[in-house]
């Protein structure tokens, strides 16, 4: 018996060891990807790179910077959120606070999940068909941010729904016991309680939206601008699209690649910053112990 147990424990050790090695290898590979990006791109990063207009010399070597792409990415992400966050929050509130077991409600909930699963390239096609062509907004910041807002909508809805559901039911009962109507409990009590969690989720998803490329391909992104856009009806540059352009369409790809890495660093830092904001706010929430 004792021997048998020993054997089992040894087996466990071996399996766990193997799993650990494999897991660590894969995690190291993932970290390696980030390290490589930094190693390959760090030398192009300087103030001029971040702030000036792009330009190429006679041999197709990029000279300038990515200023318009940074501005463009912030613009379309920000506008995309402006359109989607209010509506998404309202939808999320409905899903969480007006839950029923009805069929219609299930269809509603399913639609959100399905919309969240729509591939971004399809969003791109839809955005082009509706905003660019049908509504005649053309290739523009407005078309692209509306397209992104549709991509963001189900994410915001789910973030809101989950955050609201996390508020304990006893809080709702407290409101109902005072004679609050459903919407009063939802908007005046539960929503404020879930607010910081919702915002954390929105910040996190905005990182995802900022990195999307396919939805803006046919709705207004352009690879090269020698000025900053003046209005929402103009085309724009965006960081992820610029990466793609530099390594697939430029005349001198090998000279452009470090630039693409430099932009990748900027994107990664952006993503990391949003993740940290979310993390810190979670930490603060926990510390203050408000739900």
């Amino acid at each position: 018996m004792n021997l048998y147990l020993k054997k089992r424990l040894r087996k466990q050790k071996i399996v766990f060891f193997t799993i650990s090695v494999l897991a660590i290898l894969i995690l190291v590979a993932m970290m390696g990807i980030i390290v490589i990006i930094f190693v390959k791109g760090i030398r192009v990063i300087n103030w001029k790179f971040l702030t000036s207009l792009p330009s190429f010399d006679f041999y197709g070597v990029p000279q300038g910077g990515i200023g318009p792409a940074i501005v463009g990415t912030f613009l379309i992400t920000g506008l995309g959120l402006v359109f989607s966050v209010p509506l998404g929050i309202l939808g999320g509130i409905f899903l969480s606070e007006y839950r029923t077991k009805g069929k219609l409600f299930n269809i509603m909930r399913m639609s959100v999940a399905n919309l969240a699963g729509v591939p971004s390239v399809v969003h791109g096609l839809f955005g082009m068909a509706v905003f660019t062509i049908f509504f005649g907004l053309g290739l523009s910041i407005l078309s692209a941010s509306l397209t992104l807002s549709i991509l963001a909508l189900p994410i915001v809805i789910m973030v809101t729904e989950n955050a609201m559901k996390n508020v304990p039911d006893s809080v709702r009962e407290g409101a109902f016991a005072l004679g609050a109507k459903r919407w009063q409990s939802a908007l005046l009590v539960v929503f404020p309680a879930a607010f910081s969690k919702i915002m954390t989720g929105v910040v996190l998803s905005s990182a995802r939206i900022a990195g999307e490329t396919a939805p803006i391909l046919f709705t207004g992104a352009t690879l090269y601008l020698t000025y900053y856009p003046h209005g929402l009806n103009e085309q724009f540059m965006a960081l992820p699209y610029m990466i793609w352009g530099l390594v697939t369409t430029s005349i001198n790809i090998s000279a452009s690649t470090p630039f693409a890495y430099g932009i990748s660093i900027v994107l990664i830092i952006l993503v990391a910053a949003m993740n940290s904001v979310a993390m810190v706010s979670r930490f603060v929430m926990r510390k203050h112990d408000v739900l």
Partner: peptide
Amino acid sequence: FSPHFKKNNVVDSVLWSSGWLSNVII
């Protein structure tokens, strides 16, 4: 929550419509 949701006022209806928005988009 009570099984059958009845739209009672403007706020309820606004929330209800937002709930259906994803469906409309699909």
